[in-house]
């Protein structure tokens, strides 16, 4: 039956070829983001704390002027499997931010941030954000790395299950940050739009956010757009999936355990069934009335 199932899959494949021109045309207008190598990809993937810290610096100095990060709390900067700050450093970062609160007297106040607070949004609300940005509110970045993808197409979407390729989001974000170009002559760029090779429709409201030399790194990493786009993307992957390292580590343990248990169960089952083969007379005798028909 397995063979037949494979055959059925093969029979369906021509459908993919049949309809392929349509998707190829899509690919022409918006190129597929180039595949990057990410430290957090694959079954043993890990975040690099230094890279996350560089990415956080970019968020703080560039992105945060327009984009919120409202799901992320300051304390998580010190969590295991993250950027590797100490709790004191996370508290110091929190203290740099002003958090809206209400005083004991009931007056609206701004106080210094605490580790338990989340990153404050740059605008008071979504409407204010939209009004300040030409009518479109800059999206929250907390889960952005999981909220963007691109079509993989047949047969890659099946191959991805086995190769564990999950990084469409990061690939897209880093490509987008590097995808700003002059619009082709025949392209009508709407007013307020910026031409980006990888953005669907090519007209993106966000102006080119990062350029070479814009952010000064403390650790001597190259201050290039290429490096920036990788680092901020890795940071956004961490904000979207803060427990990725714990997940992959536990996954390895669970897979190993299941492999052992299924092996034991296979031999147990084989042993039990051998008894049927060797001693069919041991099968429980039952009166004929127990059988239907």
């Amino acid at each position: 039956m397995i063979k037949r199932a494979i055959l059925a899959l093969v029979l369906t494949a021509p459908l993919g070829a049949f309809a392929a021109p349509a998707s190829a045309q899509d690919a022409h207008s918006t190129p597929v983001p180039p595949k990057q190598s990410w430290s957090f990809a694959g079954p043993l993937g890990k975040y690099q704390p230094a890279q996350l810290q560089r990415g956080f610096k970019i968020y703080k100095e560039v992105c945060s002027s327009c984009h919120s990060l409202s799901q992320v709390s300051f304390r998580s900067l010190a969590d295991a499997g993250g950027p590797g700050y100490s709790p004191a450093q996370a508290a110091a970062v929190a203290a740099e931010y002003k958090i809206k609160d209400i005083s004991d007297a009931g007056e609206p106040i701004e106080r210094a941030g605490r580790p338990a607070d989340r990153f404050p949004a740059p605008f008071a609300n979504e409407k204010a954000a939209a009004a300040a940005n030409g009518g479109v509110a800059p999206p929250d970045l907390s889960v952005m790395a999981k909220a963007r993808t691109y079509e993989r197409g047949f047969p890659w979407f099946l191959v991805d299950i086995f190769t564990q390729f999950q990084e469409q989001g990061p690939d897209y974000i880093s490509a987008l940050l590097k995808g700003y170009e002059d619009a082709p002559k025949d392209f009508q760029l709407p007013s307020g739009g910026n031409y980006n090779k990888y953005f669907a429709g090519h007209s993106i409201a966000m102006p080119k956010p990062l350029s070479d030399g814009q952010v000064t790194y403390d650790d001597g990493s190259p201050a290039t757009l290429d490096q920036y786009s990788k680092d901020i993307t890795a940071f956004l992957m961490w904000t979207a999936e803060p427990h990725l390292m714990a997940r992959k580590r536990l996954g390895l343990q669970v897979m190993f355990f299941l492999l052992v248990l299924s092996g034991l169960l296979y031999f147990t089952k084989k042993k039990i069934w051998t008894q049927v083969k060797l001693h069919p007379e041991q099968l429980q005798a039952r009166p004929p009335t127990e059988y239907k028909h």
Binding site: P43, K146, D160, I161, Q164, Q166, R247, K248, L250, G251, L252, V254, M255, L258, L259, L261, S262, L265, Y266, T268, K269, I272, W273, V276
Partner: peptide
Amino acid sequence: YATSKDAFMMVAFCMVYAWFVFYTPNY
């Protein structure tokens, strides 16, 4: 007889399940 066979296959199925949960949870 059936229980031992079911148990083996259930754990084998759990490996597929765990693959998705731990490695490609958003696939």
